[in-house]
Design a protein around this nucleic acid. Structure first.
Ligand SMILES: [Zn+2]
Ligand SMILES: [Zn+2]
Ligand SMILES: [Zn+2]
Ligand SMILES: [Zn+2]
Lengths: 136, 136
DNA sequence: AAATATCTTGCAACACAGTTGCAAAAAAGG
DNA sequence: CCTTTTTTGCAACTGTGTTGCAAGATATTT
C-alpha cells in the first residue's frame, strides 16, 4: 500500500487511486497485461481513457515496458532500475499458446547477435511461443 | 507476371488481380508491409476487406509471414519453402527507428536459447530496433 | 463456347482499439 | 484553506480488423 506510493513517488508521479490500482494489478498478476486485461480487472472504477493514459505514463517513466505479442501489445513491470531516461531490458518473453499468458523470463537473457555492418542496434525483443510448464 | 500466377498456383490459389497486385507489391518493395501500406500502394483498386482477406489467405498458404513490430503487425514474403502445412522461419527482423522500415535479415538466424524445464518452444520471433545502414 | 460448381470480391454494418480537446475534479505545497 | 499544477471523465472521433451476404469472377466440365 505504502509501497505503491513510494514507487510512484520514486518515478516523480502523483499518487492517484487509478495509478495505485493499475500498479497493484501488475504486481499481483505476474504476467504481461494488455489494456483490455486491466479494463477487465479494474472494471467500472475508471474510464478507458484514464487507463490508456496511465499505461502511457508508466511506460514513459520506466515503470512498465512493452511486450510484443502476435495478437497485440502488452505491458509488464520493469524489474530493474528503469527510469524516465532509459529502459534497459534484455530478457526473453514467453507466450503460451494454450493458456494465452505472456511472461517475462527475467533471468533468461537474449544471446548476443552479430549484425551485418552498418546496423546499429538499440533494443532487442525476443518472443518465444509454445507451451508453458503449467499447460505441459 | 507469369511468375506471379505460378506462385499462386503453387500454393493452390486462384489467380485474381488483387492477389497478383498484392504479391507483386511484396516483391517490389522489399521491406515488411502492413495492411495500411498495401492500402496506400494499391489505392482505390480494391476494397479494404479484400486486402485483409488476401493477407489472411497468403498467411495460411505460407506465402507471407507475420512480422511483430512495436507499432503493430506487418507481413513479409516467406523466402523458403513454406506451405499450408508449415511455416519455417528462424531469421531476425530489424526495424529502423529513423526511416521506420522493418526488414527480414534472411541469413541471420536466431541463436538457440536454453529454456528452463517445462517450457516447450514452438516458434521464435526476434525484433531488433535501431538504425539501419541507409540511415546511419 | 456455354453451363456449372466453386471461390472471391465489394458493400454495409459492426466490434474493438486507441486518441484528442476540454471542463471539472483531485493532488501537492504553502 | 487557498493556489497551482496535474489528472480524470466525458464526448467525439479515427483507425483497425471482422462478419454476412449477394453479385461477380475463375476454373472445370460438357
Ligand atoms: Zn524498463
Ligand atoms: Zn519483460
Ligand atoms: Zn513462412
Ligand atoms: Zn521475416
Amino acid at each position: 500500500m505504502d509501497q505503491l506510493r513510494e514507487t510512484l513517488k520514486g518515478h516523480h508521479l502523483r499518487t492517484t487511486t487509478c495509478r495505485e490500482d493499475v500498479l497493484s494489478t501488475f504486481i499481483s498478476k505476474k504476467n504481461a497485461l494488455s489494456h483490455g486485461d486491466l479494463e477487465g480487472a479494474l472494471g467500472e472504477n475508471y474510464d478507458r481513457v484514464t487507463i490508456y493514459r496511465t499505461l502511457k505514463t508508466f511506460l514513459e517513466k520506466g515503470i512498465i515496458h512493452k511486450v510484443l505479442d502476435d495478437e497485440g501489445l502488452r505491458y509488464a513491470l520493469c524489474s530493474h532500475n528503469c527510469s524516465e531516461e532509459q529502459h534497459q531490458h534484455d530478457h526473453i518473453h514467453f507466450k503460451c499458446n494454450e493458456c494465452g499468458e505472456t511472461n517475462c523470463l527475467e533471468n533468461l537473457h537474449i544471446p548476443p547477435v552479430q549484425l551485418p555492418l552498418g546496423y546499429q542496434p538499440q533494443n532487442f525483443n525476443l518472443l518465444i511461443q509454445g507451451t508453458c510448464p503449467k499447460c505441459n
